[in-house]
């Protein structure tokens, strides 16, 4: 069966202005228990790649620059 591209809003937002991924930081990506964050090498910042979030918050709490905000996933809000 062919696959469709499925769009979804993601609950975790990264402030590009604060993110220091370009300097080598990967803390949020490292700590996420569901492994749903990644670094966008072109933009030089972290982003939520998969909509599979437990809204647990290590990404936000451990980010050294306060760039991450965890929102409650829309379906639960």
């Amino acid at each position: 069966m062919p696959l469709a591209a499925h769009a979804a809003s993601v609950p975790v937002v990264v402030d590009d202005a604060k993110c220091i991924a370009a300097k080598g930081c990967t803390v949020c990506v490292d700590v996420c228990p569901l492994d749903v964050l990644a670094i966008d090498l072109v933009r030089g910042s972290a982003f939520m790649k998969y909509d599979e979030c437990w809204y647990c918050m290590p990404c936000e709490v451990d980010c050294p620059t306060g760039a991450v905000t965890v929102n409650i996933p829309y379906l639960l809000r």
Partner: peptide, 13 residues
């Protein structure tokens, strides 16, 4: 009940 696969009680891993 929310229908969100990862909105579980347990750590979804």
């Amino acid at each position: 009940a929310s229908g969100y696969l990862f909105g579980t009680y347990e750590n979804a891993a």
